[in-house]
Simulated scan of single mutants.
Amino acid sequence: MTKVLGLISNTMDGMIVISVATLLILVVPELVLRIVHDSLANWFYSIWVSFRLRKFLIKQADHEGEGTFKLQQHNKAIRKSIIDVREKKITYIVKLPNGVQAQKLILETKEILREEISSCFPDYTFSNYERYKHWMRIEGTKIR
């Protein structure tokens, strides 16, 4: 029994080391780029605003009989959206789902989303939405 527990413990230790190494490989380059070219505070602000916008855009089922599948597709796409705050530029990217109805839900919220982002960042002016394949993007540049 001790041999089996020791083997499980060693395997778990190896998995932890691999997980930490993967995390460092993915995060450290972004941290270095942010420190050199931008501010580390903007990176944390990007993460915070991304979560806030996701929470704002998540749709709940209503009593009008909206399909739960299209709401699930919409919410899955919103959970993958990100906002990148830099010193002079802001970019918001959302992946459009494959379903037409779920895409329609996201496209209906474009103006509401634009107003929400504009109210969060009054020092920036935002372009129109640009669509590239299954991604929709809006960019803002600092005006002050």
Rank of each mutant, 00 (worst) to 15 (best):
I8K: 07
R144Y: 13
I58A: 10
M136S: 08
M12T: 15
R54T: 11
L31K: 01
V36R: 07
I78M: 05
D13E: 14
E139M: 00
E108H: 07
R34K: 08
P97M: 04
D84Q: 11
Q103D: 05
V17A: 10
K3V: 09
D62W: 10
I25N: 03
L23T: 06
P122F: 04
T22R: 04
K88I: 03
T22V: 09
K70G: 04
V20P: 05
W43F: 10
Q101T: 13
V28G: 01
Y92M: 01
M15N: 05
F56C: 06
D123A: 08
H63Q: 15
T91I: 13
I138E: 00
T141I: 10
L105P: 03
F126H: 00
G14T: 10
T125H: 03
G65Y: 12
R54V: 13
R34H: 10
L53A: 04
Y132H: 13
G99H: 02
L113G: 02
F126P: 00
L57E: 06
L5S: 13
W48V: 14
S118R: 02
F44T: 07
R137L: 08
P122Y: 04
S46E: 05
I16E: 14
G99E: 01
N75A: 10
H74M: 08
T125E: 00
Q72I: 12
V36G: 06
I106F: 02
F126G: 00
E66T: 15
S39Y: 03
N98K: 13
R86C: 03
H63R: 13
Q101H: 12
R137Y: 01
I58P: 06
R34Q: 07
D62A: 15
R34D: 04
D123K: 04
E66H: 13
E130P: 00
N42Y: 08
W135Y: 15
L24N: 03
E111P: 01
R79C: 12
N128A: 08
Q73C: 03
H74N: 09
R137H: 05
Y92Q: 00
M12H: 11
P122A: 08
K142Y: 02
E108S: 11
L96I: 06
V36E: 05
A21E: 01
L23K: 00
P122E: 07
Q103N: 11
R79E: 14
I18G: 09
I93T: 15
K95L: 06
N42H: 11
I18P: 01
Q60P: 12
N128G: 12
W48H: 13
T125K: 01
P122C: 08
S50H: 03
V49C: 04
K59Q: 15
R52S: 14
H63A: 15
E108V: 05
I8Q: 09
S19P: 02
V94N: 00
E115R: 09
E130T: 07
H37N: 11
I18E: 07
T11G: 07
D84L: 09
I143L: 08
I90A: 03
E66K: 14
K70H: 14
C120I: 14
S81P: 07
T109S: 13
L107T: 12
L57G: 00
Y129T: 04
L107Y: 08
Y45K: 12
E64A: 15
I138L: 06
A102V: 09
T91H: 03
S81D: 07
E139G: 00
K95R: 09
D84R: 09
Y124G: 00
T2S: 11
Y132V: 14
